Simulated scan of single mutants.
Amino acid sequence: MAVICKAKDRTLYAAIDGEVDHHRARQIMGELVRQIDVTMPRQLTVDLGGVNFMDSSGIAILLRANRRMGELEGSMEVVHVPEQAGKVLRAAGVDRLIKFE
């Protein structure tokens, strides 16, 4: 599984692993949004510590999750961002829209 989620007390923790590219983006995005819709969290933490490659598909995944959390009046943060993924996200300005640890 590309996304492993744990929910507790309206907090959702989602760990993404492996490659985040156009081949896996639909699966990752679908599972993440499904988990958000099921748990209705106030806080979403996305852990990218297990990601070994990310392309622009990762940007879309995080922006869609952030938009959904905004619709729920919740907040989102991204933790354990690997160097390569961080470069992609910073180049696109995602770090100005979403809190990064």
Score class of each variant (00 low, 15 high):
I36G: 08
S75M: 00
A14S: 11
V38F: 02
L72G: 04
F53R: 06
A7D: 07
I98E: 00
V88L: 06
G93I: 08
L48E: 03
D95I: 10
L97F: 05
I4S: 15
L63I: 14
Q35D: 12
K87V: 13
V88C: 08
V78A: 05
G30N: 11
G18T: 09
Q27S: 11
K87R: 15
K87M: 08
A85Q: 07
E83H: 13
V46L: 00
V94A: 03
R64Q: 14
D37S: 08
I16G: 03
L44C: 09
S56T: 13
I28L: 01
M1Y: 10
E101R: 11
V3Q: 02
I28M: 01
A2T: 11
G58M: 07
I36P: 06
G30T: 06
R10C: 01
P41C: 04
T39K: 06
E83Y: 06
F53V: 13
V88G: 06
A91R: 12
H22M: 13
D37T: 06
E83C: 04
Q43K: 15
E31C: 04
D55R: 12
K99N: 10
I61A: 06
N52F: 04
H80L: 12
G30F: 02
R26F: 04
M1D: 15
D9T: 03
E77V: 07
S56N: 09
V78G: 05
I61H: 05
